[in-house]
Simulated assay, not measured.
Amino acid sequence: MRDGKVVDARPARDFTRTSLVGAMGSVAKEEDAAKAGDFISKRTGAAPRVTARPPAQADAMELSAHRGEVVGLAGLEGHGQTAMLLQIYSAKPLAGIRMAGRGGRGASVDAPVALVAGDRQNDGIFPLWSIARNIGIRSIRAMRMGPLIDSRREDEMAEAWRARIKIRTPDIHDNILSLSGGNQQKALFARALGSDAEIVLMDDPMRGVDVGTKQEVYGIIRDEAAKGRTFVWYTTELDELKNCDHVYVFRNGRIVADLPRDQLTEEKVLQSSFTEDA
């Protein structure tokens, strides 16, 4: 099914992964975003945009994320990945103030930060608001006209991101709950990517989202990273790590491995997640 309609029906044995993804609306290209030969490290002599170390772990391995990098957080669920994202978010510059290396609580960032929540119902959407207002809330300072919000600017931003990220709705003024789950998640991405944030934190945002939506968002993440945005991405799906330049594996609240993309394998991630000596 796609958009409330049955778009294909056949015996399960007649589907392949490619045909199933294609039927769901994905580009369905069998391309590997993690080809070792295509990997070029972005870690030059420039200082990282983000540094963080797990709380109360002075001797622990440190996370760093540089300009234009997509950094993945892996390991068994509940081993400190979300806590690390919140730790980084708490170190964000104050509204309207750019402070190089502002830090606290074991983390430091040098640019504005946005967070894409994985639990959209509890931590992401504003259920009484329209789609446009949900998208624009992170950019409210840029849409002010005196003490009020300029509704024209809010609508222009929402329409631009509706087109770019392909949010399926007849009207951006409809309530956010009128959207499917995948399109609600797209609205949260539009909120973050349409803002001034140069560092985007993602807390397993693709869980439960359809394959077609995932492929569309992966492409946008790669495009934005190529323009210089930095992403720190916690995911519980091993396949999503192939979109990352570096992957930090967590175990028992500690970072236990840093795997650049050309060294990333499922075996290494699993070994680091379960054993003391990865």
Results as ranks from 00 to 15, higher is better:
Lys186Phe: 06
Gly181Gln: 13
Ile140Thr: 04
Gly194His: 01
Ile176Gln: 10
Val116Met: 12
Arg152Glu: 05
Ala117Met: 11
Leu128Trp: 01
Ala114Lys: 14
Gln87Asp: 13
Leu73Cys: 08
Ile97Glu: 15
Ala142Tyr: 02
Asn175Trp: 00
Ala142Glu: 15
Met143Leu: 14
Arg152His: 00
Ala83Asp: 10
Ile172Ala: 03
Pro112Val: 09
Gly136Val: 10
Val71Thr: 05
Phe126Trp: 07
Gln185Arg: 08
Ser178Gly: 12
Asp155Leu: 07
Ile88Lys: 09
Arg153Pro: 01
Trp161Pro: 06
Arg162His: 04
Gly75Ala: 03
Met61Gly: 11
Gly75Lys: 04
His79Asp: 10
Ala65Asp: 09
Lys186Ala: 07
Arg153Lys: 15
Asn122Ile: 02
Ser180Arg: 08
Arg152Pro: 01
Ala158Cys: 02
Gly146Ala: 10
Gly101Val: 10
Leu86Cys: 05
Gly181His: 08
Gly124Glu: 04
Leu177Ser: 13
Arg133Lys: 12
Gln185Thr: 08
Lys186Cys: 10
Asp171Ala: 04
Ala142Cys: 07
Asp171Pro: 05
Ala91Gly: 08
Ala65Gly: 11
Gly68His: 08
Ser90Lys: 13
Gly68Tyr: 09
Ser180Thr: 15
Arg191Cys: 07
Gly101Asn: 12
Asp119Pro: 00
Arg144Lys: 15
Ala192Phe: 08
Ala190Thr: 07
Arg144Met: 07
Leu85Asn: 04
Ala160Leu: 10
Asp171Ile: 03
Ala132His: 02
